[in-house]
């Protein structure tokens, strides 16, 4: 956080930075929610040791590789394995259980970031004996983040939260079966077999169309970073990527009621924010 009152970022300078990223590199953050975006810009100033947004623009302008890095630092969001265990119980017991006799389950993790939700899903599918027939796409705007997700390596300090969330799932399985601790005890790595059916794919949810159709789309705590207009557009993309009867999961404090596609969905769980596509 910036503590120097003289450097409070104006709306104008924030918009200028968004315009620069779009016009120079095609990265479109113009419809991001302002408060969190402003915080990410402050983080960028710190990260690139820049004294001002103008200086930041000069640096990124001169060096395209910094642009990709900037996008990572803007969008990276800490999530956790099995965030909201009650959501994952509902997902398991009322959504995934419907696919027990289906030949295939097609799942899209839209804007999967560092992949925690992907591994959470794969572990639950494995526990249910459904992993073999899952066809999973995990997409993100940033290739470095995707590479992290694919590696399955996470800091060991994440394990406390993961364990306490996992315990709340009420499953007979053992979390220890799914990861190994590195020899220097700083990281854990989830088993590669978990993601054997996962296709990691670079995709910009903000500016690109969907690329296939799915039974389940997870996009949890992604659209909170967008403004109304962008939420609406992204919901169109997601809705078009779901089969009739498919399911959408969003974050526990997100809502789609304001989106024009809301009429295409019916809540399966109001509490856990799981919707069924009815058209």
């Amino acid at each position: 956080m910036l503590l120097n009152k003289d450097t409070d970022l104006s709306l104008t300078i924030i918009k200028q930075f968004q315009t620069f990223l779009f016009e120079k590199y095609g990265y479109d953050f113009r419809d991001y929610a302002l408060s969190s975006f402003k915080r990410r810009v402050e983080h960028l100033l710190f990260f690139f040791k820049s004294g001002s947004v103008n200086d930041l623009i000069r640096k990124i302008d001169a060096n395209p590789s910094l642009a990709e890095q900037a996008v990572k630092e803007i969008t990276v969001n800490t999530t956790e394995m099995f965030r909201d265990p009650s959501f994952w119980r509902k997902m398991r017991d009322e959504v995934l259980s419907q696919f027990v006799s289906s030949p295939v389950i097609r799942i899209w993790h839209a804007a999967c970031s560092s992949g925690e939700e992907v591994y959470s899903m794969c572990i639950i599918l494995q526990e249910m004996g459904l992993l073999d027939k899952a066809r999973i796409f995990a997409s993100d705007i940033n290739s470095e983040v995707l590479a992290n997700a694919k590696s399955g390596v996470y800091p060991i300090r994440s394990l406390d939260t993961t364990k306490s969330n996992f315990d709340r799932l009420g499953t007979s399985g053992k979390l220890e079966n799914y990861y190994k601790v590195s020899s220097d005890q700083t990281t854990i790595k989830y088993n590669e077999s978990l993601i054997k059916n996962v296709n990691f794919r670079k995709h910009n949810l903000v500016s690109e169309e969907g690329f296939s159709k799915f039974d389940i789309v997870l996009c949890r705590n992604v659209m909170i970073y967008f403004n109304f207009d962008l939420q609406d557009r992204v919901m169109d993309t997601i809705s078009n990527s779901l089969f009739k009867g498919g399911f959408l999961a969003i974050g526990s404090k997100e809502t789609i009621v304001w989106c024009s596609t809301a009429k295409d969905f019916q809540p399966l769980s109001v509490e856990e924010k799981i919707y069924k596509k009815i058209v």
Binding site: L11, A33, S35, R39, G251, K253, E254
Partner: peptide, 13 residues
């Protein structure tokens, strides 16, 4: 968070 258009927003940062 507060947003300038009078709404509230949430973040998982």
């Amino acid at each position: 968070y507060a947003e300038i258009n009078g709404t509230l927003s949430l973040s998982t940062e």
